[in-house]
Every structure is written in C-alpha cells, then in structure tokens.
C-alpha cells in the first residue's frame, strides 16, 4: 500500500548559537503528517513553531535528526533538489507574507507559472480562490498598496496556486478578523478533505482548532499531542 505519510520527522534537534549563547529551540521532535489531514501546531511566542515549520519544509536544516518529504530524505539531497522539491510539492505561507514587492498581485501568480509550468490552478480555479478570500478586486495592486490582512490573504492564495501536495502555513490568520479566519480555516480544511492534501498549520490562534484533525503543542522545545 502507498505510504500515506507526507512528512516524517524523527529525533529533530535544533540549536542556535555557540557555547554560552547556545539555545536549544527544538528537542527530540517526532512528527508525522498525512495526506487528507490537517494538523495544527500551537505554542506560545518564541516556542519554536516557525523553526519547526521551516525545518519541515527544508528551509533550514536541523542540528540533528531526520526529515523526509514524500520519502525523500531532505538532509541527504543536494540544495538544487531541495529547491525543486519545495517548488513542486510544498506551498509555504510564511509569517512575513513574503510577496515580491515589485510585482502586482496578478503577477505574483504569473511568475509562478513561468518557473513552474504545468500543475498550477486554472484561471477559473484561481478566480474562485481569490473570490473566496475576498481579494478578487486587488489583482492590479502592488503589495505596498495592500493592508496587512489583504497581504496575508494574497500570500495564502499565492502558496495554494501551484496546487502543492503539502501546505505549510505559519500563522496564516494572524492579521485576519473572525469572519476571514472562518474562510481560511474552511479553505484549508477542504483542501485536506476534498483534494487529499496534507496541511500543517502553525499558530497560536485557537479559532483554527475546530478545523484540525490533529493538534500538537510545542512547549520548551518539546512537542506533544494535545487534546
């Protein structure tokens, strides 16, 4: 039978700095994400949520431990291959939104077409997504003309546009009001259930709890399953 696991992390440690300034952010993390499921990772600010997520997506390497994305060991492959994996399999919704400042909303998507090609959404699907997120009227604007919440929603759409198998979201609702939180929560939930994607959301927004299949908590660098 096909492996349902999209991301597997074993014995992950992450430390920053050296000697006296050394801090251990993650300790012996065990984590698995599966297709068709949405996982929520919660924890207080500075607990290592972003660090965990970027290691899961191959943006940084753990100090120790093993990360596999769709059975490919991230730590063992060359940078180029890791880039390709990120480009083709993973949609990152980053905490700092990360839109390209000199491209309009429309062009943020177009640029993905150019380097990625085939698998992205159709124009209709994209328009539906933008309408769901309430940003369909913003496509000619530049990032500096958007509000924080609008930027965050564009960043969500940009990450989902290439139809990634795995979506890694860092505080995707930090700048949104309750109404939009519902929309985004439902959207991510549907992606898991209807499109069989693997969704991992890192947040301290408890309003997202109801959409998750699994909830984990990071405290003092250790992860445990929460109720």
């Amino acid at each position: 039978m096909e492996n349902k696991n999209t991301i597997e992390m074993h014995h992950i440690d992450k430390t920053f700095g050296h000697d006296t300034s050394k801090i251990q952010v993650l300790k012996d993390i065990e984590f698995t994400a599966q297709r068709g499921e949405m996982s929520l990772v919660i924890g207080p600010s500075g607990s290592g949520k972003s660090t965990f997520l970027t290691i899961a997506g191959g943006l940084q390497t753990p100090t120790a431990g093993d990360v596999r994305v769709e059975d490919t060991p991230l730590t063992a492959i060359p940078v180029k291959q890791r880039d390709a994996l990120r480009l083709n399999k993973i949609g990152f919704i980053l905490q700092a939104y990360n839109l390209v400042p000199f491209l309009t909303v429309r062009e943020q998507f177009r640029f993905v077409d150019r380097i990625k090609g085939a698998t992205h959404m159709t124009e209709d699907e994209l328009m539906t997504l933008l309408a769901d997120l309430g940003i369909q009227d913003l496509i000619t604007k530049y990032p500096n003309e958007l509000s924080g919440g609008q930027t965050q929603r564009v960043a969500i759409a940009r990450a989902l546009y290439p139809n990634p198998e795995i979506v890694l979201a860092d505080e995707p609702t930090a700048a949104l009001d309750s109404e939009r939180v519902t929309v985004v929560g439902q959207l991510l939930h549907d992606l898991a259930k209807k499109h069989n994607k693997s969704i991992i959301v890192v947040t301290h927004d408890m309003r997202l709890k109801q959409y998750a299949d699994h909830i984990y908590e990071i405290l003092d660098g250790s992860m445990r399953q929460a109720s």
Partner: peptide, 8 residues
C-alpha cells in the same frame, strides 16, 4: 523571498 518559494 523567491528562494523561500523554491525559485532556483
């Protein structure tokens, strides 16, 4: 930003 998105 672009590198984070996987742009080579």
């Amino acid at each position: 930003v672009l590198r984070a998105q996987g742009v080579p």
